[in-house]
Write a protein that binds this DNA or RNA. Structure first.
Length: 427
RNA sequence: GUGGCUGUAGCUCAAUGGCAGAGCAUCGCACUGUGGAUGCGAGGGUUGUGGGUUCAACCCCCAUCAGCCACCCCA
C-alpha cells in the first residue's frame, strides 16, 4: 500500500457507486434546464490567465487558480469558473446569436484552495445563464429554475431556501447613510460576513474601516429589515413573478445576501440549508456588463452556478440520494463445470440478444461462490445449467430475493425471465 | 496562506511507558448441485515517515508528510 502514488490533493475519484450519483445529478440538471428551454454548451477547460485577470474576484485568479506555463511560455489556467469563457463565446458571435440566449453547462472546474467540508480542489459545476434580457421576470426565471431543481431532486422548502437580495437596493440604502464608492465595497464584504463573525468583532471592523456609529447602526438596521424589499420596484416584480411561477415557497428575502463576485449589479441569490451550518449550495445574480469586459458590446444577463459537492452533501443529509440499482435488472449465468461452459455461454449470448443485461461468471467455480457473487452485487436473477437440466433441455431460473427456483424448458426460458424481471422491477 | 484535531490490520476503532488487540470484511472448512444464516479455523502490522528521551515508546519530545475541521475566499 505504501508504494501507491497519492492522488493530487483535493482531486476526486469516482468509484462506480459515486459515478452513479454524479450521472444522476447530471440527468436531473439536464432535465430541469431543458424544461425551461435552455441549450447545453461548454467552454475550454484550459484558458489563458488573461481571461480571468480583468474581472472575477481578484483573489479568485491570483490565489485560487491552478496556473502553469505551457511549452511556449504562456500562463495557462485550469478554469476556476465558466462565466468569462461564456462571455467570450457570446462576444465572438454577438451579432449572429438570437437573444435572449438560454444556455447551460455541467463540467469540471479547479480551484487551488485548502480542501474541507463541501469544498475540493476539483469539482463539477452547473452553470446556467439567461443573456440579453434585462427584466425582473428574467431574474425570477433563474430563481425559479433553482427552485424547480430543488423540487426535482426531492429537497423541500423547509430544508433549503433560496435567499434573494438586490444590489441596487443595498446601494441605495448605503448611499442614504453616506456610504459610497470604495467604502461601499468594504461594507458589502462586511455584510456578507456578518453571520460568521462575533458581534464585537463585526463592530470593531466596521469602525476600523471608518464607519461612524450612526452608519453602523444604519447598516445593522438594513441587515435586519426583512421588509426592505418593498422599497425595490425590481424585487417587488421578482417576488410577484415567483408567485405566478409557483415557487415562492422556496424563496425568501434576505438583506444580508451580497455575494463576493464584483460583477453582480442587480439581483443576487444563494441557496442555503435552513439548518444553518455549511456554506451556500448555489449562488448567482444579475450582471449588466459581462460581455463588455472581453471586448463585446455591453449585454445584460442573469445566471447562477451550483457545485456538485455541497448539493451532494445536502442530498446525503436529507437522505435523498438515489438508491443504487445497477444490477437489479441483471441476470447472472452460472457455469456448472467445464463440459457445460459452452452451454451457459451460449445462453448468456441469447439473453443479451434479447436485450437483457447479463453477466457471465467468467471461470469455473463452486456454485456457492457464484451465487454469493450474485448476492453481493445485488443481482436478483441467476441461471443454473447443470447436467440434470442440460440432459432434458431445461435450465433453472433462480429468483434470489424470494429464494425460489423454477426449472423450465430452455425454449421458454427467455419469456419466463422477462416476466420475472418485470415482476421484480415492480417491487 | 493562518490555526486546531487526528494518523495502529482492507474498514471502524481499542491498548497506565512493560508480549500490538477486537468487531466487520477476506479466505478455508462444516456444505464437492445452490446466495443471505450459524459455528469453527486461517491469513493479514516496520503502530504514516525520520530523528530524540528512556533499561524499555503505539504512548513522551522535535521535525516531516497525509487526512479532517475552521479562517480567508468561494460552488
Amino acid at each position: 500500500m505504501k508504494t501507491l502514488i497519492q492522488q493530487v490533493k483535493g482531486t476526486r475519484e469516482f468509484y462506480p457507486s459515486q459515478m452513479e450519483i454524479r450521472r444522476w445529478l447530471y440527468s436531473k440538471i439536464e432535465e430541469v434546464s431543458i424544461r425551461y428551454g435552455y441549450q447545453e454548451y461548454d467552454g475550454p477547460f484550459l484558458e489563458k490567465i488573461e481571461l480571468y485577470a480583468a474581472k472575477s474576484g481578484e483573489e479568485l485568479v491570483k490565489e485560487q487558480a491552478f496556473v502553469f506555463p505551457d511549452r511556449g511560455g504562456d500562463l495557462i489556467t485550469l478554469r476556476p469558473e465558466l462565466t468569462p469563457s461564456l462571455a467570450r463565446m457570446v462576444a465572438e458571435k454577438q451579432n449572429e446569436l438570437v437573444y435572449p440566449i438560454r444556455w447551460w453547462s455541467f463540467g469540471p472546474f479547479w480551484r487551488y484552495e485548502r480542501p474541507q467540508k463541501g469544498r475540493t480542489r476539483e469539482f463539477f459545476q452547473w452553470n446556467i445563464d439567461l443573456i440579453g434580457a434585462d427584466s425582473p421576470e428574467a431574474d425570477a426565471e433563474l430563481v425559479a429554475i433553482c427552485a424547480s431543481f430543488l423540487r426535482t431532486i426531492g429537497i423541500t422548502p423547509d430544508q433549503v431556501k433560496i435567499l434573494v437580495n438586490h444590489r441596487k437596493l443595498v446601494d441605495q440604502e448605503l448611499f442614504a447613510l453616506g456610504i459610497e464608492s470604495d467604502l461601499k465595497k468594504e461594507v458589502f464584504h462586511l455584510i456578507d460576513r456578518h453571520e460568521k463573525m462575533k458581534k464585537e468583532d463585526w463592530e470593531s471592523s466596521a469602525k476600523e474601516m471608518g464607519l461612524t456609529q450612526q452608519q453602523i447602526v444604519g447598516v445593522v438596521e438594513i441587515m435586519q429589515d426583512k421588509e426592505l424589499w418593498r422599497k425595490s420596484p425590481e424585487l417587488i416584480r421578482v417576488f410577484s413573478a415567483l408567485e405566478s411561477l409557483g415557487v415562492s415557497e422556496y424563496v425568501a428575502y434576505d438583506p444580508k445576501i451580497i455575494r463576493g463576485l464584483d460583477y453582480y449589479t442587480g439581483i443576487v441569490f444563494e441557496a442555503w440549508d435552513v439548518g444553518g451550518d455549511g456554506r451556500a449550495a448555489l449562488g448567482g445574480g444579475h450582471y449588466d456588463n459581462l460581455v463588455g469586459d472581453v471586448g463585446g458590446k455591453p449585454l445584460a444577463g442573469v445566471g447562477f452556478a451550483m457545485g456538485d459537492v455541497m448539493i451532494t452533501l445536502l442530498l446525503e443529509k436529507y437522505n435523498k440520494l438515489p438508491v443504487s440499482s445497477q444490477y437489479k435488472d441483471c441476470v447472472l449465468v452460472t457455469v456448472f463445470d467445464e463440459s457445460l461452459l459452452t452451454s451457459s455461454l451460449t445462453f448468456a449470448a441469447e439473453l443479451r440478444k434479447n436485450g437483457i443485461k447479463t453477466i457471465f461468471y467468467p471461470e469455473i467455480a463452486k456454485l456457492q461462490k457464484q451465487l454469493k457473487f450474485a448476492d453481493r452485487l445485488g443481482i436478483h436473477t441467476a441461471i443454473v445449467i447443470g447436467p440434470d437440466e442440460e440432459n432434458l433441455g431445461n435450465l433453472a431460473i433462480k429468483d434470489l430475493p424470494h429464494g425460489t427456483q423454477e426449472v423450465v424448458k430452455r425454449s421458454e426460458a427467455i419469456d419466463k425471465i422477462k416476466h420475472l424481471l418485470a415482476q421484480q422491477s415492480r417491487v
